[in-house]
Design a binder for these strands. Structure first.
Lengths: 111, 111
DNA sequence: ATAATATACATCGAATTTCGAGGTATGTCA
DNA sequence: TGACATACCTCGAAATTCGATGTATATTAT
């Protein structure tokens, strides 16, 4: 049904992660898993296209950096525009979440 | 990324509505809109296929009833099996919601 | 009386989102 | 040297929702 645009919460999660620090893809998957207590297991086939989309929109900026061991990593940085997007999507999530809970709380006690 | 099965919360909303009383399709759309403070605007093209699916699964049972004005309506009743499904999906939603909030709360203050 | 609107059901193709499977390459460890 | 983890990527398939469209009946306005 989705309110206006989308309940595409995956991008929201990525933006939230990047608001703390620059990160690379593989790292995001791991962070999401720990921070969500193993509820989220985002797949690479989901994440990479999202990152590319956010980059195209100007919400993130990518740069290559070498890890201490010599491996090449692609870090993503949240732009000012991305911060705005995060704010918007966060509010959308809160409205969505509030609405689901409102419907649920009027449901009869399934424990 | 979805935890195990699905974040298909639409069925959850329908099941929650039916836990209170039997309802017909058109009524559900209206109830969802008011109970969610206009956040949800479920479309008929979304709802009817879901109802048919839930019926095939045995979560709801349909019956025809004539409205006081003579119009024919198709009411849906939540079965015992449907109550079990509601319970399961409710728990899934709670885990999902908790996880999103956990990631968000560790994000930097976007107001 | 008639036209417009609201109610009420339904289906179908298109768009969006996510996954699963597969591919490439490099670093580490047995 | 082979196995495994890290790290990036793409593509087709599956799932979900919407928009459009169709049918039919009741209500309201003209």
């Amino acid at each position: 049904m989705r309110q206006k645009k989308t309940v595409e919460h995956t991008a929201l999660l990525v933006l939230a992660l990047l608001s703390r620090e620059d990160m690379y893809g593989y790292q995001m998957i791991a962070r999401l898993e720990e921070q969500s207590d193993h509820t989220f297991e985002m797949k690479e086939g989901t994440l990479y296209p999202i990152l590319h989309g956010l980059e195209k929109e100007g919400a993130v900026r990518a740069y290559l950096m070498e890890a201490p061991n010599g491996r090449q990593r692609k870090y993503y940085h949240l732009t000012e525009q991305g911060k705005g997007l995060l704010q918007t999507e966060k509010e959308e999530w809160q409205a969505y979440s509030r609405a689901v809970n409102a419907v649920l709380s009027s449901a009869l006690g399934t424990a």
